[in-house]
Every structure is written in structure tokens, then in C-alpha cells.
């Protein structure tokens, strides 16, 4: 168990356990996630990294039979507290999924979905928000002339950046990305990675990735999961040059996984 101490902590996880029915998927995870940094979660598939990611915005609750105990604090607020409203929580945390999942609506309506949900219907305001977020997601120039076009007509990489824009439109502080580039070609992937680099100026980003090089390229911190446990976490540089655990080294050097 490694706890990385940083100058401050955005998300503090303590003794987190998660069970699917009788099967334990996460055991005793404790971790601190630094604000305005990129934290990469790596590990072989089925190691619990995606499950872990979803505990941060309580998306696991959508699955029946899930039991979670332990503590997750964001800005020192316990998000598993009974008093916490999960909808309010999710408004403050953006999530990007493995497979891009734009709504079958126009590009504009995709981005405007979140603001509209929050009660913004003024066309001008929406237009402003859409433009700003699309610019932030580095896709404005590609779509500015056909905002009315169906989002499904975009390429995979564009769709994924649109999804990022959609998440940014509700102005979250944290972005959770679940293998956002795994379905994309190298050029589209590079664009996403570039974007992540830009975004970390303003957002706390947690990214699950399969791709070791990607973790090395985009992240400031890396956490290695194996069999539902957090094996090791440190600055990415340390993790990739001098991991303390044998398992981490084996995985990073490609000996298994």
C-alpha cells in the first residue's frame, strides 16, 4: 500500500472495498489524488481499475447487488455519506467512456444536454456554452459549421472529443476517463492525449488506460492495480523508472498482462 502525498489532495480514498454479490472486486484501496494533475490507473484487464474509477462518481450504484464500504472524500466531503445527493455529485464530475457514446442527436444538442438538464434554455447562453466547450475540447474548428448535424456522423475520434465537450459543458472539476482512446486510431489518440494535457490545467483528471505508453505520456501519477488491489502508486516518472514492487515492474516491462 502506497500513499502518495502531494501538496494537497483533491480526492482521498480510504479503505475502499467493493463487492459484486459475494465476489470482492476492490479490496482496501487507499489513495490520494492530486488536483489539476493527471492520475493514470493501470493494470491488467479485470484488475478493478474501471470499477474503481466508477466508485468516484458513484456510477457503480447503477448495478444491482453492489456493496461498497470505505471512504471517498472529495475536497474533504464524504461522497458516500447518506446526506450526499448522487445527482449533484455527478454534475460536478465529468465522465468519458471507453466507447464514445454521443446521443443520437445533433452536435449542438449533445453539448447542450447537460446545461439544459440544469435548467438553461436561453438559446444565446446555450450557444455560448457550446462554443466555449467545443473549443476547449479542441473540436470547434472541425464542427463549427455543422452543429446541427447528427453527432453519429462524426468519426470515432471526433465523437470522443465531442463526449469530452459534453462532459465539460456542465463545468465539472474532475474528469474521469475510462480508456478514452482504446477504440481510436493513433492519430485520434494523439489528439485526445494532447487534449488531456491541455485540460489538466483546469481539471483533476483520472484516466484508466491499458496502454502503458499512454500512461507514461499523459499522466503525472500512476497507480497500478492488480486483482482488485492497489499495488503501488507514485509519480509516473518513479513508477516507470524505479517501481518498488516486483509486480509493478513485471507489468510495466510487459512480462504479464
Amino acid at each position: 500500500m502506497t500513499t502518495t502525498k502531494t501538496e494537497n489532495t483533491k480526492i482521498a480514498i480510504r479503505d475502499l472495498n467493493l463487492h459484486y454479490g459475494s465476489k470482492q472486486a476492490l479490496s482496501n484501496i487507499s489513495m490520494d489524488i492530486a488536483p489539476k494533475n493527471v492520475t493514470a490507473l493501470i493494470g491488467p484487464s479485470g484488475c478493478g481499475k474501471s470499477t474503481f474509477l466508477r466508485t468516484l462518481n458513484r456510477m457503480n450504484e447503477l448495478i444491482d447487488n453492489v456493496r461498497i464500504d470505505g471512504s471517498v472524500r472529495i475536497d474533504n466531503v464524504e461522497i458516500y455519506d447518506k446526506q450526499v445527493d448522487v445527482v449533484e455529485l455527478r454534475k460536478r464530475i465529468g465522465m468519458i467512456f471507453q466507447k464514445s457514446n454521443p446521443f443520437p442527436k445533433s452536435i449542438f444538442d449533445n453539448v447542450a444536454y447537460g446545461p439544459r438538464i440544469n435548467g438553461i434554455h436561453d438559446r444565446k447562453r446555450l450557444e455560448e456554452i457550446v462554443e466555449t466547450t467545443l473549443k476547449r475540447a479542441a473540436i470547434w474548428d472541425e464542427v463549427k459549421n455543422d452543429l446541427g448535424k447528427s453527432a453519429l456522423a462524426l468519426s470515432g475520434g471526433q465523437q470522443q472529443r465531442l463526449c469530452i465537450a459534453r462532459a465539460l459543458a456542465v463545468d465539472p472539476e474532475i474528469l474521469l476517463m475510462d480508456e478514452p482512446a482504446s477504440a481510436l486510431d493513433p492519430i485520434a489518440t494523439a489528439k485526445i492525449e494532447e487534449l488531456i494535457y491541455e485540460l489538466k490545467q483546469s481539471y483533476t483528471i483520472v484516466i484508466v488506460t491499458h496502454n502503458m505508453q499512454q500512461a507514461a505520456r499523459v499522466s503525472d501519477f500512476t497507480a497500478f492495480f492488480y486483482m482488485g488491489e492497489l499495488i503501488e502508486m507514485d509519480s509516473t516518472k518513479t513508477m516507470f523508472t524505479a517501481p518498488t514492487k516486483k509486480q509493478t515492474e513485471d507489468y510495466i516491462t510487459g512480462r504479464f498482462g
Binding site: I79, K91, R92, I129, V170
Partner: peptide
């Protein structure tokens, strides 16, 4: 304004409503 009353992660802001 963009998000109505979204005010970050505070006990108040996240209170169940």
C-alpha cells in the same frame, strides 16, 4: 450560472435534495 447552483464539493452543495 452555467450550472445553476453548482458550487463545487461542499457539504451544502452536495446535500441531498
Amino acid at each position: 450560472a452555467g450550472n445553476g447552483n453548482v458550487t463545487g464539493f461542499t457539504t451544502q452543495g452536495l446535500r441531498r435534495r
